[in-house]
């Protein structure tokens, strides 16, 4: 229905020719934009309601009893549902460490929470289908578990900034909410978030549409296809410092994949963009000494690269 509407708007109302570069690009743009905004609005709202049942204060209490391994698995899974924004990373990290959550378990959470988020899932589901979205969640959770276990084994506690251990945390004041309050909070969360990300979505879909309409078929096959062994690490290296939310990147990667970029390379690129970023590094520098920060980024980047190779090999 949506596809018919987009085609009607572009080819009949605007009178663009079917099969022309401009017509194809415009059709792609209209269809994807409408679809993504419908998905974003409903799903962000629903996820915000669900998440209100998993405040970080609760997650912390849950994980502070945890041991390694089981704790890493729980932390990676809770990372999916616990709300996270990079500006809360510091209080969250201190809160975890202070209440006795092991360092490796804390990192499992810190990897999974930003990487496996609802916006990434909506965009993947809408543009790539549910299979890729599920693969993305599965890999994200695995990478979070493994990176956390490795960091835990390396015994890097002394590379946390010293003041973190000195902070005395007050009694947590998690407030209980009624269902009505949850709905109203979800609305207060969804509207500003949409206002913030819509330019990224439009820009991302716009660039994607341009590539879709104008780039020749398979032009990336030579450079970023499964035959090039350097494509995956290169994609990760480009993706790590990039800061964009999933809303902007995923429409572009969809178009790149269509033009011959291998699936594993695309996945690795998306993960690198969402999991690691320069602003996040700057924020985490407040609680981590440089060596731990670099180790953290290094381990996650390697894990993402390996995931990329794995999917290029099996898909």
């Amino acid at each position: 229905m949506l596809a018919n509407f987009a085609a009607y708007l572009v080819f009949t109302v605007l009178g663009l020719a079917k099969g022309s570069h401009l017509g194809d690009a415009a059709n792609f743009f209209v269809y994807d934009t409408i679809k993504i905004f419908l998905l974003l609005t409903t799903i962000i709202f629903c996820v915000a309601v669900i998440r209100s049942y998993f405040p970080p204060e609760k997650t912390k209490r849950f994980l502070s009893h945890g041991k390694e391994y089981v704790g890493n698995i729980l932390a990676a899974l809770l990372g999916i549902v616990t709300p996270f924004c990079s500006c809360s990373a510091v209080p969250l990290f201190i809160g975890f460490v202070e209440s006795g959550v092991p360092l490796g378990v804390t990192f499992s959470f810190l990897v999974s929470s930003p990487m496996v988020n609802e916006i990434a899932l909506i965009m993947l589901w809408g543009l790539f289908g549910w299979k890729i979205a599920l693969i993305y969640i599965g890999c994200g959770v695995m990478i979070a578990i493994i990176s956390g276990i490795v960091i835990g084994k390396l015994r890097l506690e002394r590379f946390v900034q010293d003041y973190v251990y000195k902070i005395k945390m007050g009694e947590t004041a998690a407030t209980e909410q009624t269902f009505r309050e949850r709905l109203s909070n979800a609305r207060n969360y969804t509207v500003p978030l949409l206002k913030k990300i819509w330019p990224y979505v439009i820009a991302g879909v716009g660039i994607g549409a341009f590539i879709h309409g104008y780039a020749p078929e398979g032009f990336l096959l030579k450079y970023a296809g499964p035959q090039n062994p350097f494509a995956v690490p290169l994609a990760v290296l480009v993706g790590v410092p990039l800061y964009s939310n999933a809303a902007g990147v995923i429409p572009i990667t969809q178009a790149l994949m269509e033009k011959g970029m291998a699936t594993g390379t695309v996945l690795a690129f998306m993960m690198a963009v969402t999991a690691l970023s320069l602003p996040e590094a700057i924020i985490l520098k407040n609680v981590l000494k440089l060596r731990l920060l670099l180790t953290f980024f290094g381990i996650v980047a390697v894990a993402i690269t390996l995931t990329g190779y794995l999917f290029n090999a099996i898909l």
Partner: peptide
């Protein structure tokens, strides 16, 4: 100030 914020037991700002 993060130390002040933590004193209130707040983990999400």
């Amino acid at each position: 100030d993060i130390t002040e914020i933590m004193r209130y037991g707040v983990m999400s700002t």
